[in-house]
Design a binder for these strands. Structure first.
Lengths: 217, 217
DNA sequence: ACCTGAACACCGTTCAAGT
DNA sequence: ACCTGAACACCGTTCAAGT
């Protein structure tokens, strides 16, 4: 009854997607579903339904569900790089501690603005088995921003000559940890305060990086 | 054909579970499934199948799938508290920096030993809507261990008088971040080195906590 | 009390076929 | 090339009924 009503009253949607933009349409709709109800709630069938296409059509553009989510993750890392670069442009090139704080702020605010996408990006499903090299390189690009800032701080002598790989991982873990606490609703801070919190949290680690003779407020 | 063969060849499993240990059996089997294939792979039907019971029987003991996983998470946090306390007992009560390092080591090694369970514990599904107060209190107990150690360090003057809530969250975020990196296989450290890495990672933040006149190696 | 058969409304994915 | 109908082997959850 319901299906009969649907097909008679609404007919087929007008859009055809013979042009290759079905791929784009599916990715857009996936992003929307992710932010509405989280990664679990994304299904191939519902995505196809929203686009107005048979669910089988999606497999013409994505090998399977994971492959589609991998592209979502990749796009997410690219956007993350953009917002971080934009935030860093606002800070003095010489204040290396402040720059790492800004970086953490941009990272956490991104995760807070797109929690569904962020969960896909950091979930084990997309990352576990070196499949999806696109995700790997996009993530590496984001990761590299932290290394660049840390290297710069060490080169100018603002930071102690620490093990760079280890500290980059530590900073990355800290930012992701804060973002996760937020996703788990474990942070009793009002929403607008997340960026501030991230900046202060990373500040505790940055303080450990500074040379002992550095002046602190 | 298959179902006919199964029922004729194997008959019903002998166990009855009229004693109330079906609940226990389901939790055990859930733990095993989680470690085998991750949280996604856990299903009520497969769990019931392994226990040798109709899948409907599980709903006699757990309201739904999430409720069962919540108990798994709660048990996980209790075990986490135990392993942390055990590790802390090995450290001098007066070396507060080292104690936080030990705590991070125990935390990360737990996550690495039971990755499936850890993902359930920290996933948003179990935590999102204040349902399952048992999870909340078990997590609070674990969280409190960090606060206790930090308070002690500040009281003796080893640490600066920082904002305790903020720093506890920072340390917690750092530990979880490292554990997540491991789960995502983003840490190019051999498996036995995870605990060492966690200890050093948290050490960078601890260094920021120490009074400026503290001797460092 | 505890357990189950049958059913409902979903999934992801594949085959063979349509334009 | 691009799309779909029908089907397979799964899910979580519920009803009404069995012991």
């Amino acid at each position: 009854v319901a299906s009969a009503r649907r097909s008679s009253a609404k007919k087929k949607p007008a859009g055809r997607y013979h042009h290759g933009d079905l791929r784009r349409a599916l990715l857009d709709v996936a992003g929307a579903m992710l932010e509405e109800d989280g990664p679990e709630a994304f299904t191939m069938r519902e995505a196809a339904r929203r686009v107005g296409v048979d669910h089988r059509a999606a497999y013409r553009h994505f090998e399977d569900r994971r492959a589609l989510l991998a592209v979502v993750a990749e796009d997410g890392y690219r956007e993350l790089v953009e917002v971080i670069e934009r935030e860093l442009a606002l800070a003095a090139p010489s204040d290396h501690g402040a720059r790492l704080g800004r970086l953490a702020r941009a990272y956490v605010e991104f995760a807070n603005r797109r929690p569904g996408r962020y969960q896909v990006m950091t979930g084990p499903r997309v990352n576990e088995d070196g499949r999806f090299p696109g995700v790997e390189t996009a993530l590496a690009d984001a990761f590299h921003l932290v290394r660049r800032e840390l290297d710069a701080g060490i080169a100018t002598g603002a930071f102690r000559p620490v093990d760079v790989t280890e500290v980059v991982l530590t900073l990355w873990a800290g930012m992701h940890g804060v973002a996760s606490l937020i996703a788990m609703r474990r942070l009793r801070v009002r929403r607008e305060g997340f960026g501030d919190f991230a900046e202060r949290a990373i500040g505790h680690t940055v303080r450990g990086l500074l040379r002992d003779d550095t002046e602190l407020d």
